[in-house]
Design a protein around this nucleic acid. Sequence first.
DNA 1: AACAGGAGGTTAATTTATTAACCGAACGCT
DNA 2: AGCGTTCGGTTAATAAATTAACCTCCTGTT
Lengths: 340, 340
Amino acid sequence: MATMRDVAILAGVSTATVSHVINGSKRISPETTERVLQAISKVNYRPNTLAKSLRLGQTHTIGVLVEDIRGLPVAAIVSGISETLAKGGYKTIFHDLHLLEKLYNQYEQIGIYRQRINEGLALLQSSNVDGIIYVAMHDRHLDYLFDPMDTPLVFAYSHGTESDTFVTYSNRDSAADMVRFLLGKGHERIAVIAGHPHSYPTGQRLLGIQMAMQQAGLTIPQEYIRYGNWEYDSGLEQTLELLKTDPLPTVIFAMNDLMAAGCMAALLSAGLRIPEDVAVVGFDNREIASYLQPPLTTIALPTPEIGTRAALHIIDMINNPSTHPVREIIHCSIIERESV
Amino acid sequence: MATMRDVAILAGVSTATVSHVINGSKRISPETTERVLQAISKVNYRPNTLAKSLRLGQTHTIGVLVEDIRGLPVAAIVSGISETLAKGGYKTIFHDLHLLEKLYNQYEQIGIYRQRINEGLALLQSSNVDGIIYVAMHDRHLDYLFDPMDTPLVFAYSHGTESDTFVTYSNRDSAADMVRFLLGKGHERIAVIAGHPHSYPTGQRLLGIQMAMQQAGLTIPQEYIRYGNWEYDSGLEQTLELLKTDPLPTVIFAMNDLMAAGCMAALLSAGLRIPEDVAVVGFDNREIASYLQPPLTTIALPTPEIGTRAALHIIDMINNPSTHPVREIIHCSIIERESV
DNA sequence: AACAGGAGGTTAATTTATTAACCGAACGCT
DNA sequence: AGCGTTCGGTTAATAAATTAACCTCCTGTT
């Protein structure tokens, strides 16, 4: 690979002049500029990023640390991140923690989490990244997971603490929106298949649901609220339980599309029609939602926006190191299909 | 950040000694070693990767260029790649071409492809990556898309040319396997919903299907072969056409899961039972396959292996620059569910 | 004529880590 | 005693850029 020195010799000038021509950091006469440019294209010179970064102390590279790229929303977020970073002239160093399997038995394995996360962070820092974006799907409080560090950090999808910058989506308000949507369609007997009882999204979404009901002067009876484990089978099982209630709910709000799919299967096998007898809605807008029979009305996570905003924030933090942490909560949208 | 110089001063030695202690490149007395180690941990020293890479001429970084991370198999492949690279001590620079939208109108836009790909490659090369893995889902011939370069390159998923190293999966043999599997279940009237008529996978899979049939002394009648466009709707439409044949096929082999889903919907709406009246199989093993009613028997792409193998190859090429190109074709496996 | 000042370059220090070449002291051997 | 090794370090060049400081003409002003 040609170096600046080769160019300088060929053009009959010093490396300083070549540098000034490239960066416009000093007036150079048109003739000299032309000679240097000629030389550059002749030897097909490209600046050595390593040398430049070493000298300047910044790499124009952002570390993206993900829990697991195989998680659908993670891939969509990373897509948004990488597009925005590239537009801003930043490169992306990608590191995957491969933590998908362990996603739900979180509290037991907190030590492993902590260790792996900090290894990942150390790796990225040793690559001299200018900033780090952490993309996680889980709902844990992350504050004490992170060793202190001086590299700017933003959380995408998951929450940070109060002193962190993060961008996430609104669990509570989205669930409330959905309830208002259902109310608007004339549904008053709304049943819920929640996720893991103690998880953060479950709590927040339940809160939003109850808020919206209350505002309409309604409540959800205890037997209409059931807890699953986010998986298809639990949606099926809990629906079977719901079918024992009398009167039946007119709509079932499953807290993710997988459980909604299980729910629909149970309903169908009980001979009920969707949405005529019981309507169903989900949460997440996974691929499966549009291929269910009937296609599922659900809530779309604002995944590309989360990525875009997170990337914008990290760039901002690099350029203005003293800015205050920002907490951005992006609204979800309801995707209306035929299950209501 | 502490530098080697800080460590040297604190330990009362030269930077050369510190370097030798860290790299074991020279005998250093136990006492001095101990003093240096103490100093390192005292100032929390970490070697500056940029300086090291600049001096040594290699970054231990691999560029991963993907057409679009939102494509499911791409994310799974990247997962395999990143895991293997990390184990091998390599970092990953990730660059996404965001080409998903344009995936099927390929021939018109070849100029854009070419330009974007080479911009991506140039970007990675300017980051001084030691090697590049290109992950694409499409079936184009890529030979003339790439400007010549000296950085080692391996193709994952898509084909390269004869002179490239690539790892992909077997379209023809997998389709043949599926036919043999169906034959073994007693099916002899096999209908096919193919993908785009002129696409590479369509051609190869059709070839495999006909090969396997021929070996069994059978052929597929012309009216049993229909072409879709890989989308749900086309699976539905083509199944409607197949239902006009007499006798009906006993099984429909859709060349992807989306078309298989459409096919099942058409069958169900025609009052046919799956698999009793007509069985259905797909290709890809997307998430949707396990949630269809009944769950779909399909072919699983060896995505993690493709990633793993590609990563291993690139590492090998870096360490042994003179090795010949290798073409690796990985076998798919049949995922047996309840649609047959 | 003398001097200021600007235009257009160059010199050399700097960023951090690696490593070939070198150097002094201690030790062993005849 | 004299010589050759080995041990345990150090010195300084090197990788490829950036940039403050400096230097030399040349022009314009009084």
